[in-house]
């Protein structure tokens, strides 16, 4: 039974484990860890009710560094492990950490089913477009033609887009941020934490050892504003240093088209206004290809649907209505006969 204990307000320190953090110095994972540790105390969830579940890869070492319950499982299977955890105890706050290889290659199937079930878990996918822990092979998000240790002449595989994958599988919350985004990442994580259902966050993460500067144009300060489309619900889609560029719906091509010189903060009426609840708009945003278009950051899609746990609860009610007694009744169900004592 879960004991609810009134405790003093938790702080970041309470969530930092005593384990040595073993990522390479300078790894983008540090920034993500730090943002997560900022968010956790705010959620007012007792420490013992958090479970961090991961698969295999650099990102999947994450649970060791958070002082809650944690399960470092096997390659790609974290969503399946998390399903079991939630089936056993739906009250837990379960967070998954995965990577582009773990989540979209070996574990793609489980992630798909996690999304369609709308299991109430938070999925943080660290996308560095490379296999790091196995030392530099191409991943399912590596660009076509990418030269790596396992593709010396360039990869023949077209990349998968994590956001479009999540939307396609029916995820109810889809967002994107990046390792060094600071307040933006914290905001996105906070939103994810409060979403009921599977909350998917793609976090662009730099692996400076095997795929350095993969997102440089998006994340470096000089080009960030030109290349980032920061989404705000109910606000026009604008970007650029002066917020003077925007996106408008082009009915002729059924796509988002760039609009230049839109005036300060996109005051032009023709601009598309972000609506997180629109699955169609989410698809449009997810389809913007960089570098022709800026990269959408923030919450692309959020919708409230019954969670897997809600469905289980519904089954419980049904089961209680039709229950036919306890264990003993079950064992003697069917056609029985009594053999009398001689």
């Amino acid at each position: 039974m879960t004991m609810v204990v009134e405790t003093a307000r938790l702080t970041q320190k309470d969530f930092a484990s005593s384990d040595d953090v073993r990522w390479c110095p300078g790894c983008g994972d540090y920034g993500i860890l730090s943002s997560v540790l900022k968010v956790l105390p705010e959620l007012e969830i007792p420490k013992e009710n958090f479970v961090w579940v991961s698969g295999i890869g650099c990102s999947s070492r994450f649970p060791y560094y958070v002082d809650t319950y944690g399960f470092h499982s096997i390659h790609g299977r974290a969503p399946a492990v998390a399903l079991g955890v939630k089936a056993a105890n739906p009250k837990l706050s379960v967070w998954l950490v995965t990577g582009d290889g773990d989540g979209l290659s070996i574990g793609g199937n489980h992630l798909m089913h996690c999304f369609r079930r709308n299991l109430d878990v938070k999925v943080l996918l660290f996308n560095n477009r490379i296999y790091g822990l196995t030392k530099g092979q191409y991943s399912p998000t590596s660009e076509l033609g990418k030269q790596t240790h396992s593709s010396p002449f360039g990869s023949a595989d077209r990349p998968v887009d994590p956001i479009r994958f999540a939307l396609g599988c029916g995820a109810t919350f889809v967002a994107r941020s990046y390792d060094t985004a600071g307040a933006h990442l914290v905001d996105v994580l906070r939103r994810a934490a409060r979403h009921r259902g599977t909350a998917f966050v793609e976090i662009l993460q730099n692996c400076h050892v095997f795929n350095d500067a993969a997102f440089e144009q998006i994340t470096n300060k000089a080009s960030a504003s030109a290349n980032q489309l920061r989404l705000e619900n109910g606000k026009p889609l604008v970007y650029g240093e002066a917020k003077d560029k925007g996106l408008a719906l082009d009915p002729a091509t059924l796509s988002l088209a760039k609009v230049e010189n839109v005036g300060s903060n996109g005051s032009s009426k023709s601009l598309m206004v972000h609506d997180e609840s629109s699955p169609i708009l989410a698809q449009f945003l997810a389809s913007l290809s960089f570098p022709e278009y800026p990269v959408p950051l923030g919450v692309l899609y959020a919708n409230s649907l019954p969670t897997y746990e809600d469905q289980l609860h519904h089954l419980d009610i049904q089961a209680k209505e039709t229950a036919r007694g306890g264990l003993q009744a079950l064992l003697k169900s069917g056609q029985v006969w009594q053999v009398p004592a001689a």
Binding site: F71, R77, A80, V81, G84, K86, M112, H113, G326
Partner: peptide
């Protein structure tokens, strides 16, 4: 289910084992 049984038809054999293990952990 009224006897505390949650039976989940998993997406594959691997997920079935992993979810059983996750449940055991919990």
């Amino acid at each position: 289910r009224h006897l505390g049984v949650t039976a989940i038809q998993a997406e594959d054999e691997i997920a079935a084992a992993c979810l059983a293990l996750g449940a055991a952990y919990a």
